[in-house]
């Protein structure tokens, strides 16, 4: 029994990461009807920004030991800044010129951006992993046979915090309302006086901030940043977004946790080699009965 509780915690940890990345896919899809395949790379670049920030503190100050909360906050902040700057550039250079092109063109462009960023970092790091300095306190909470390390709790907590923050941003702020309006109907939103270009950029910014911050937390958790680290989480998060209903913010969160838990349980039941098989069988099964995902909107009228 303890093992199943432990697996549930493992699943929630990974699921939270998937959910945070999935939100970026779903937001951009909502406003642009486009899959930003370079989104996983924003997660990766955030992790690098975090590791370089912490390494800088390590080399030049003793703040990592004296005041880890400050350096960790700074690392997360840098992760957000780098991811946001890249997302804005990405949108301006690679996607906006193609906004009125056939839908496949920005998709290919996104794959190009993804490959470009990954290779830039491969070249820069000489394909080595950058190791996070040991700033986070070791140790774990033990309840019976269940043990949860502090870093895992931190990752779970931060992912929930990021998601709640984003949800409030989308639901409660003026910008969030604009994003929802553009997602609903871009032309009508423009007629209502919403600056569509600006809103689209802000959507990218929101998704990127979440990916960058999650990248830093995940990097601290696994202990390193690598050029290829965004690829698989990116694909999984995309799957989570589709599962939850692409375009739906709560759907992406649900999809992320669903996928994380399914992977954790499958690892125990059938072995880790089958976790992707099971995840994708579930995806197909869900899409047969609910093509719009758990919480997505039916789009048959739109088409």
């Amino acid at each position: 029994m303890e093992q199943w509780i432990q697996l549930t915690i493992d699943g929630i940890t990974l699921g939270g990461v998937y959910a945070c990345i999935a939100l970026g896919y779903t937001l951009v899809y909502g406003v642009l009807r486009m899959i930003n395949f370079a989104h996983g790379e924003l997660f990766m670049m955030g992790a690098f920004a975090g590791v370089y920030t912490l390494q800088g503190f390590q080399d030049h100050t003793s703040l990592n030991e004296d005041l880890p909360s400050l350096t960790i906050t700074a690392a997360i902040f840098m992760g957000i800044v780098v991811a946001v700057v890249l997302a804005v550039l990405m949108e301006r250079i690679a996607y906006r010129p193609l906004r009125h092109a056939p839908r496949l063109a920005p998709l290919i462009s996104a794959i190009g951006v993804s490959i470009f960023l990954r290779n830039v970092m491969l070249r820069y790091t000489n394909a080595r992993r950058e190791v996070y300095p040991d700033v986070f306190p070791d140790g774990s909470i033990e309840i019976g046979d269940v043990s949860v390390s502090y870093i895992k709790l931190f990752l779970i907590g931060m992912s929930i915090l990021f998601m709640v923050g984003l949800y409030l941003f989308i639901q409660r702020t003026k910008t969030g309302t604009a994003i929802r309006a553009v997602a609903e109907d871009r032309d009508t939103a423009a007629l209502m006086g919403i600056d569509v270009d600006r809103t689209i950029v802000l959507t990218f910014v929101a998704g990127a901030a979440l990916a960058g911050a999650t990248g830093v937390c995940y990097g601290m958790y696994v202990g390193n940043a690598a050029a290829g680290m965004g690829f698989i989480p990116g694909i999984k998060a995309f799957t989570a977004a589709v599962l939850g209903g692409i375009g739906s913010v709560p759907g992406a969160m649900l999809g992320g946790y669903f996928l994380g838990l399914s992977e954790a349980y499958t690892t125990k039941l059938f072995g880790a080699q089958y976790k992707d098989v099971v995840a994708f069988v579930l995806l197909v099964a869900v899409l047969i009965f609910r093509p719009w995902g758990f919480l997505g909107k039916r789009e048959d009228r739109r088409a």
Binding site: Q3, D10, L14, V17, Y221, A264, T267, K268, Q273
Partner: peptide, 17 residues
């Protein structure tokens, strides 16, 4: 016998097993 997937980094479910 357990396996890990190349390219991933979170193996906590494997570790739990």
């Amino acid at each position: 016998r357990e396996v890990v997937t190349v390219g991933e980094q979170d193996y906590s479910a494997v570790v739990t097993t």
